[in-house]
């Protein structure tokens, strides 16, 4: 089995299912993550993302499937073969949860104590970088969500793990912290650390991830590789018009205004249209008795991205 593993593969999950109280939390999920790569998992709320990462780190019992870590089989045939691999994984769940009656430092020490090779200097350094050093003796109950989130991310960076798993890492953070964190993350990735990010914030993910998986109803429904992700990067400035007859509207707009259009579900995407053009198009469609539901800027939220992966959208791209 070892020989069949790709050389740089860090984590491989095959047909993993989690069944709790006769209910699937994760069903038949397979994924693979190489060293030095960032894998994103996007999905709506309750789609099974968090359960998947909990299963990977043994916080939830796996009912079916196989897990390989760093070239070794760690779970197979309903048997936990090696549990020590979790020591090489740093996980940050969302919302960040700590012991509120204890101080920042006490909480960090408690968690860091489970790591094999952490040093106090490293922790102090990270506390300073994330502007938490002055609050190290403050009780967690007095911290804001934002500060707790920073604590949680900080803990993921200590002791140079082989794999970092992040659940909604950017929620509630300011741009400055996100940039700082991304920078630290990239440095670790450059040294071969793998990163698994679970989020419904595709905007931040697409800038970082080499692969993105889409989850719905406890299953992986689609995946985007680096090339496909780069296409989405161009969609950031699209204006969309949601209408009842998107195909007909798109044809009219294309003929009359000579601008590129795409169809995403019941939305018509206007490619690089100016504000004047958008205004004119709205008037035009209204005159033509089109029913317009709403108009807006494409933000690439998970739901939209997922909708965009429908066959219609892909055909239009072709």
């Amino acid at each position: 089995m070892k020989n069949s593993q790709p050389k740089e593969e860090l984590l491989r999950v095959e047909n993993l299912s989690v069944l709790v109280n006769k209910k699937f939390l994760v069903q038949d999920v397979s994924l693979s993550l190489n060293k030095g790569e960032i894998l994103g998992i996007v999905g709506k709320n309750s789609s099974g993302k968090t359960s998947l990462i909990k299963a990977i780190v043994r916080a939830l019992p796996i009912s079916e499937g196989e897990v390989y870590f760093d070239g070794k089989v760690v779970y197979k045939d309903k048997q936990e073969i090696d549990s020590s691999y979790v020591a090489d994984i740093n996980t940050a769940l969302d919302p960040p949860m700590f012991y509120k009656w204890q101080t920042v430092l006490e909480n960090i020490k408690f968690i860091a104590n489970f790591k094999t090779n952490y040093s106090q200097e490293e922790v102090y350094e990270l506390l300073k970088e994330f502007d938490l050093f002055k609050k190290r003796h403050t009780r967690v109950m007095k911290l804001t969500y934002f500060e707790k989130k920073k604590m949680s991310l900080l803990l993921c960076l200590i002791s140079s793990p082989k794999l970092i798993i992040l659940d909604e890492p950017f929620r509630g953070l300011d741009d400055d912290t996100i940039t700082k964190f991304k920078h630290k993350l990239q440095a670790l990735v450059a040294h071969g650390t793998g990163v698994l990010i679970v989020s419904n914030d595709f905007k931040n993910m697409k800038a970082m991830c080499s692969n993105v998986l889409f989850m719905e109803n406890r299953q992986i429904k689609a995946s985007l590789d680096a090339k496909e992700i780069s296409k989405f990067k161009r969609l950031d400035n699209y204006t969309y018009i949601r209408t009842k007859y998107p195909h007909y509207a798109a044809q009219l707009i294309k003929n009359c205004y000579r601008i590129g259009v795409k169809i995403m579900g019941n939305r018509v995407l206007l490619m690089n249209a100016t504000e004047e053009q958008v205004s004119s198009i709205i008037r035009f469609l209204t005159d033509k008795k089109f029913i317009i539901y709403d108009i807006g800027q494409l933000t690439n939220e998970a739901e939209e991205i997922f909708a965009s992966l429908t066959p219609n959208f892909r055909e239009e791209e072709k």
Binding site: K54, A59, V86, I89, P95, M97, F98, I111, F114, K115
Partner: peptide
């Protein structure tokens, strides 16, 4: 409140 998960995700 997720404290148990927080600990379970450690080693």
């Amino acid at each position: 409140n997720g404290k148990m998960d927080m600990v379970l995700t450690q080693n």
